[in-house]
């Protein structure tokens, strides 16, 4: 069957029908095609990339020291409200450059998003994969833990812990990371159950492959797409929780520039100088929207390959 069909007609039949026609594009090529055709993913990715670059190169980009106070230049309005180019986004109530604080604030938001997502991802994925793969009692225990966790209001618990331990970047990140694993566990459990039933897992077991090997090489690569989607969603979630905690004064402590803290500090003057709240709010909104766009996009483009 694999020999080329030899045929007397020449040109039209010289190609080997087997490979030329059957072998479709590689999964990589297909993924690239889908990614490039997905506007939401591209826009979200571009915004996140921009903000990430901003965070990484903050010392190079920021026009001023974000901590430098200048009481002479307090509450200068941004350029579009008649301010000067010296402080394009104006200054806050202590005369600190708002743009510089915004740029440094990206560091806090992204750091907390990434680290919290990693902590919760490790916890949740371990629990979910174990429950999905082993089933039985492991599954019962994990399901119980998930239900316990879901019964706890995240913000209230985080507030209580931070109130006891005191707010700092480390405490907030850890607490949020330890609280947000539920979705990882739920999604990973379901995906693992699905993949576990595939015959290639049975084939690997029949070959004598060890359980860690099966989990790492057969299960994980096939649930990774779902994992990435949850990571993005939980990053956005963590960033919002940090902002909320900082806004309530129990998160990142001043003078660290955090978007949530900036909103909080600006709120007393919100009626007179609404831009103090609106600028960090808009940036926060944009980042979370971009992350969600990317998460949705990733779900679309990595949707399990069609069976044909």
């Amino acid at each position: 069957m694999t020999q080329t069909v030899t045929n007397p007609t020449g040109a039209a039949f010289d190609r080997d029908p087997l490979l030329e026609q059957i072998l479709g594009p590689t999964p990589g090529q297909m993924l690239r095609r889908r990614v490039l055709g997905h506007q939401g993913l591209l826009i979200g990715g571009a915004v996140i990339a921009l903000l990430a670059l901003m965070a990484i190169f903050a010392p190079l980009i920021a026009p001023h020291d974000p901590f430098a106070q200048s009481l002479m230049n307090r509450m200068e309005p941004p350029v579009f409200l008649g301010g000067s180019w010296e402080h394009p986004l104006g200054t806050d109530h202590l005369g600190r450059d708002y743009l510089s604080r915004l740029i440094y604030g990206a560091r806090v938001s992204l750091l907390i998003g990434v680290v919290a997502a990693v902590i919760s991802g490790v916890i949740g994925t371990t629990m979910g994969v174990a429950a999905g793969y082993f089933g039985g009692r492991v599954d019962a225990v994990v399901t119980f833990l998930i239900n316990v966790r879901l019964a706890m209001p995240v913000v209230l618990v985080a507030l209580a812990v931070v109130a006891i331990l005191g707010g700092s970047l480390t405490v907030v990140t850890t607490v949020v990371g330890l609280l947000l694993w539920d979705r990882f566990a739920v999604v990973m459990r379901a995906s693992t159950r699905q993949v576990r039933a595939r015959e290639y897992v049975a084939a690997a077991r029949a070959v004598g492959a060890s359980t860690p090997r099966i989990l790492l090489t057969e299960i994980m690569p096939n649930i990774a797409n779902n994992l990435i989607v949850v990571v993005t969603l939980e990053m956005a979630h963590a960033i919002l929780i940090e902002a909320a905690l900082s806004f309530l004064g129990l998160g990142v402590q001043p003078p660290t520039p955090s978007w949530g803290l900036m909103v909080s500090e600006g709120k007393t003057m919100m009626l007179f100088e609404p831009w103090l709240v609106l600028i960090p709010g808009a940036v926060l909104f944009t980042l979370v929207l971009a992350i969600n766009l990317m998460g949705d996009g990733l779900r679309d483009v990595t949707a399990p390959e069609n069976r044909n």
Partner: peptide, 24 residues
């Protein structure tokens, strides 16, 4: 032998010729 041809665009001649032992 062989597989069903691609059905994108017009197919000229016999659709089965790529798998037919008698094709000429």
């Amino acid at each position: 032998p062989g597989i069903v041809p691609s059905l994108v665009g017009q197919v000229d001649g016999c659709v089965f010729r790529t798998r037919c032992t008698q094709a000429g």
